[in-house]
Design a binder for these strands. Structure first.
Lengths: 229, 229
DNA sequence: CGCATTTTTTACCGGTTCCGGACAACAGAA
DNA sequence: TTCTGTTGTCCGGAACCGGTAAAAAATGCG
């Protein structure tokens, strides 16, 4: 069963033309859309305007190393392809955010299978465009939120928090997870800020909807309150 | 700081005791909760009552083959471990739903990294890490506990204790182990405190369920009481 | 540059939870 | 039984956490 309908876009980042061409050919034969980049800087440039569903990243790159661009990729699964077979390399790359690691030379059938595995994941691929929860509606494209029709003006952070909470209703979101998602690269110690943001968000929602929507779980984090009609 | 709170449960399905024991030891050292099963049928039986966060599945199993139980697992990532290195095996297993595939012998560091990759996934909305025992249900998602449907409000420590006890039902948990897991950053948290926590936990469960669920083993520790219907 | 908005820090309060001692109740050994 | 070590529970103080307001710092905008 091939992906003949749901053609996903795969981004090949590889300076080696021969391997890249072979991959492109195989992937296209499988019905995938293919993007190409031949250096790390080029890859980042492409990623600024396009959002592929999967990235095949060769580590040996001119200019920016693969290791350096991996942390800059967010929300897209990355399969690292490398000639290095040492465990240290695999471990460090996987822990740095890679979704999988294949050693050259590899069997293309296995690569194709592992690509399917990644694309099968409904994680970030289709970022839900609209969320709805007990009167709160949140649209991703317009970045607007309304409670029972009344528009509510939220700041960027408040919006991010609410989105994360509404994406997993009735599930506790850890404070650490919230902090990671909201302010990506601050080392630590803004747990107090989170409290303030939650407080402000609560207030705005309460002013618009008349009730408190966010529940705090002592010592753990926050969740959307279960509302019974 | 280490993730003391979010210890995930990993389910090892392997009939080979030596490999299984080694895995269990390593995983526990990493702070994971471990479940074991030694056959396919046993694995399915366990999965009816518990929902781990990840499954390590050895293909060579007595009775039900690993291939047969893989399709029955839904919503939990499965890392297949097998001695067969042929591409056909990898491909078929990956396409059948496996999240990853490791060939024996493998480097445990790589396995640990790949486990992290799977657990890192903002997992399927499905309820992971749910435990059920004689009317007590404990869900990791909502961080809530209920006895025969009645919600019980537990402290963070109480929750941790109960989770540890319920993860290994009818097995004595030593006081020292409980102390290690619960207050990771207190040098030697007094044993008297643990007694208090257990006492409070007992009281809350008793108030909701009408009976005492925790049994104390003189001089050793605690375990869940065996309850006959 | 000045101004407005947003984010972060700081401080404080009230409530929750934890700790560890005290002491009675209990189980096991002699 | 008596003695000894363990367990269950009560309790006060300490430490911690969460909510909010106000100030300070950072950011965006014209």
């Amino acid at each position: 069963m091939k992906n003949t309908q749901n053609l996903s876009t795969i981004f090949i980042i590889d300076d080696d033309a021969s391997i890249g061409n072979m991959l492109e050919e195989i992937l296209k034969k499988e019905g995938y859309q293919v993007l190409r980049a031949y250096s790390g800087t080029e890859a980042l440039f492409v990623l600024e305007r396009q959002k592929p569903d999967l990235i095949l990243l060769d580590l040996m790159l001119p200019g920016l190393d693969g290791r350096e661009i991996l942390p800059k990729i967010k929300g897209i699964p990355v399969i690292v392809i490398s000639a290095r077979a040492e465990t240290e390399d695999k471990v460090s790359l996987l822990l740095s955010g890679a979704a999988d690691y294949m050693t050259k030379p590899f069997d293309t059938r296995e690569l194709l299978a592992r690509i399917v595995v990644q694309l099968r994941n409904p994680s970030v691929a289709g970022t839900a465009s609209a969320l709805e929860f007990a009167g709160i509606s949140l649209s991703a494209d317009t970045h607007q939120v309304s409670v029972w029709g009344l528009p509510v003006k939220l700041t960027r952070t408040e919006y991010a928090i609410l989105k994360l909470l509404m994406a997993n209703p009735s599930q506790v979101i850890t404070k650490t997870l919230l902090l990671e998602r909201i302010s990506e690269d601050t080392p630590d110690c803004m747990e107090s800020s989170l409290r303030v943001h939650i407080s402000n968000l609560r207030k705005k929602l309460r002013d618009a909807g008349g009730q408190d929507y966010i529940e705090s779980v002592w010592g753990i984090g926050f969740k959307m309150k279960e509302i019974e009609n």
